[in-house]
Design a protein around this nucleic acid. Structure first.
Lengths: 232, 232
DNA sequence: AAGCAAAAATGCAGAGTCTGCAAAAATATA
DNA sequence: TATATTTTTGCAGACTCTGCATTTTTGCTT
């Protein structure tokens, strides 16, 4: 009615965002309670107050709804990579971009923690989640190439999918190094998160993250023997 | 009857292997002809001469049949890692193990080429294929830990799944470095293969592979400017 | 060779996922 | 208020996948 809304576009877009969020939240809550495998699209849709059909207007598959947190992380990371000081090496620029994004995430810890809890029983989804959304490899590779190369007019933010038909062409235009850096960086984040998840409480995430990228920057040399259990 | 078979176990196991192979081959052929998306389990089963239900006795999901080539690569890589000369760094040991496995694969090029052709239109499956079977990250990480640490009695070959319930425990016992090395190595192979696939004919795969691991060993420093298109 | 037990294949029912399509409801605009 | 656009919804239908009971095949013993 006479509601004076301040931010956001039209009512339509706000409603869409709300529905999307409602579906994600319902999915996560139900999964936390009953286990991911036992949550049907029907249940999620009902809990969110929309029809089953509408669910599939928002997500391409059932799994996708469990993976949609941090869907905009990719963009933020890429912007941060481009905005990094010029004296940073590509790896450093990427590391710092990822680090600040992860800090951002830690701020919403409650939600992420619930997600982590849910995905604990479904590592396949965890991997997919992190791999798919944290950095969107192809887009990230393009951004890295742009930063390294100079002023290519690429940028292309807000790229959702990663395997569209003519993406092959985008891949062709890229060198090996940007793709490798994007892939390895993403992988490193995944490993760090997994390692930290599995030993929650023992170490702060920041430490794990730092150590991970130190290994990378050093060229992955054999590490010093374990501190508390030195081999014979 | 009075058939004098030489190799292989009983008839039973041979038949199972044959059925498995028939299903994989039928799937690949049908996919090559009609596109992966349009190949139903019914069609695959019919082409292989078994019932639809039987298909699911062999594969957990439809997609799995497109990904089952190289299912035993993981084991070979792990054995090679353990057998590597003692003076190799972990990264070198892994690189050499992966390299010989990839040579092995190139020997079966026809089959793999057909697969590659099929998966060209389904990069998601390609990624899954390589990621899931080339090295089985968790198992590989354990093997690397064993090689580095000394004589832990692990080994655990022939590990099929990667997200079983109590796998968490296996993960806990591992250090960050072996997991990172396994993950990054696997990722590097994936990137090398993808890059090479996308520019087939321009370079030999061996070159791409070598360059990839040189980047890793050097700590991913900013690369020299492109040879044919130097930035301003 | 006949018989028996284990293993595998099969059919079938049923739950669940996902896609078009056309009608209905909601929203934006004039 | 009237109209155009977008979104939601219901429905039919194809497909994936699972559990269970039954039939067929295989391996081994007598």
């Amino acid at each position: 009615m006479s509601e004076g809304v301040s931010a956001g576009g039209g009512l339509r877009e706000r409603k869409k965002k709300a529905t999307r969020a409602a579906l994600v939240e319902a999915a996560v809550r139900l999964a936390a309670e009953h286990g991911v495998e036992h949550v049907t699209v029907d249940a999620i849709s009902a809990a969110a107050g929309v029809s089953t059909r509408t669910f599939f207007n928002y997500f391409d598959s059932r799994d996708e709804v469990f993976v949609m947190i941090g869907a905009d992380s990719g963009d933020r990371v890429r912007r941060a990579v481009l905005a990094a000081p010029r004296d940073r090496s590509p790896l450093d620029a990427l590391r710092e971009a990822l680090a600040s994004e992860l800090e951002e995430i830690e701020r919403h810890q409650e939600l992420w923690h619930l997600h982590a809890e849910v995905l604990r029983g479904a590592p396949q989804l965890l991997a997919r989640s992190l791999g798919a959304h944290m950095a969107d490899e192809l887009g990230l590779a393009e951004t890295l190439a742009e930063r390294i190369g100079g002023g290519s007019p690429l940028f292309t933010p807000e790229r959702p999918a990663f395997s569209t038909p003519a993406d092959q062409e985008r891949r062709r235009a890229l060198g090996l190094y940007p793709r490798l850096l994007a892939a390895v960086g993403t992988t490193a984040v995944r490993v760090a998160v997994e390692h930290w998840c599995v030993r929650q409480g023992e170490t702060g995430f920041a430490d794990v993250f730092r150590e991970t990228f130190e290994h990378l920057a050093a060229g992955l040399p054999a590490p010093a023997p374990a501190p508390d259990a030195p081999a014979s």
